[in-house]
Amino acid sequence: MRVPPSLITLALVLVLVTAPAFAERIVGDAMPDRLAAAPGDPERGRAIVTSRQTGLCLLCHSGPFPEERFQGDLAPSLAGVGSRLSEGQIRLRIADARGLDPDTIMPSYLRTDGLDRVAETWRGKPILSAGEIEDVVAFLATLKD
């Protein structure tokens, strides 16, 4: 079944009009409201954080993952991040850390506009979905030590 272009355009307009603007979600140094309707799942979040194909977090970060070899040292350790940052602060850093530090090497996992050096296949696409970001937030919030 072929969907008429006018219907696709209407759906896109509805999403853009009904979704709060990215900047409107930010309060101080945090994004307090969830990006997805359902709460995140820490188990799925752990799988994303430790994945060498999905999150790629361990390329730059290290953490309490003794089974994972070759953890990064370019960014802060994820150990204890749940004690240092609120869920909203973690969420903003994952969704778009450049809102806090324009010179960061942390990729914007949700924002898709105004980015540099994005591979053609990734242009206009987030690295993680809103639900996946919520999963990662739920997991990182559990890292208290």
Rank of each mutant, 00 (worst) to 15 (best):
M1E: 15
R2Q: 11
S6G: 06
T9Y: 05
A11Y: 12
A11N: 08
L12I: 13
L14R: 12
L16N: 09
V17F: 08
A19L: 15
F22E: 08
A23V: 14
G28T: 11
D29L: 09
A37P: 02
A38K: 11
E43L: 13
G45H: 08
R46T: 04
R46M: 14
R46F: 04
V49K: 01
Q53C: 01
T54S: 10
L56I: 12
L58R: 06
L59T: 15
G63M: 01
P66W: 05
P66A: 09
F70N: 12
L74P: 00
L74I: 05
L74M: 09
L78I: 13
A79F: 03
A79D: 12
G80M: 07
V81N: 00
S83Y: 01
R84P: 00
R91Q: 10
L92Y: 02
A97L: 03
R98A: 05
G99Q: 15
L100S: 06
P102K: 08
P102N: 03
D103P: 00
T104K: 03
M106W: 02
P107R: 15
S108T: 14
G114R: 01
L115G: 07
D116V: 07
V118K: 00
W122P: 00
I127V: 14
L128V: 11
E134P: 03
L140W: 05
A141L: 08
